[in-house]
């Protein structure tokens, strides 16, 4: 049983109140992208054993999409955050690090800053 706290309404929603939306932080490949990149955007997913970022919709509630960080092996939830974040925020990263000291983010800060707010 998975219980996630919706960051928009603060409700602790149980799995049946939510709708899964797959991997989070996918970036669409536009018309300039190569066929390989577009195919990867459509089909390639990380599917890790361990820390994973996911989209969820609070379907039987406020109806908003939000993002969650959790472990696919232990089902431990590290935190949830609003879908307006282009990358997981610092407190989520800290929460993951507290439990998984070896874990490394697979995005870089410059990358995040360059693309984040005004996009």
């Amino acid at each position: 049983m998975l219980i996630l706290t919706c960051p928009y309404c603060g409700v602790q929603a149980e799995e049946t109140e939510l709708h899964p939306g797959g991997e989070a932080h996918l970036k669409r490949v536009g018309p300039d992208g190569s066929d390989e990149d577009f195919e990867a955007y459509l089909f390639a997913r990380k599917n890790p054993k361990g820390v994973h970022f996911e989209r969820w919709r609070h379907a039987y509630g406020c109806g908003k999409w939000f993002l969650a960080a959790r472990c696919t092996a232990s089902l431990q939830v590290f935190g949830t955050y609003k879908a307006q974040n282009p990358y997981p925020p610092a407190e989520i990263v800290d929460a993951i690090r507290a439990h998984r000291p070896d874990w490394q983010p697979d995005w870089t800060v410059q990358h995040a800053q360059a693309e984040s707010p005004a996009e």
Binding site: Y8, C9, G10, V11, G61, C62, G63, K64
Partner: peptide
């Protein structure tokens, strides 16, 4: 406020989502 409902006994105003 979020997930709140206010009432005066006749009318009620409920919070449905951040914009509703």
């Amino acid at each position: 406020g979020p997930t709140g409902i206010t009432t005066d006994g006749v009318r009620s105003l409920g919070w449905m989502s951040p914009d509703e």
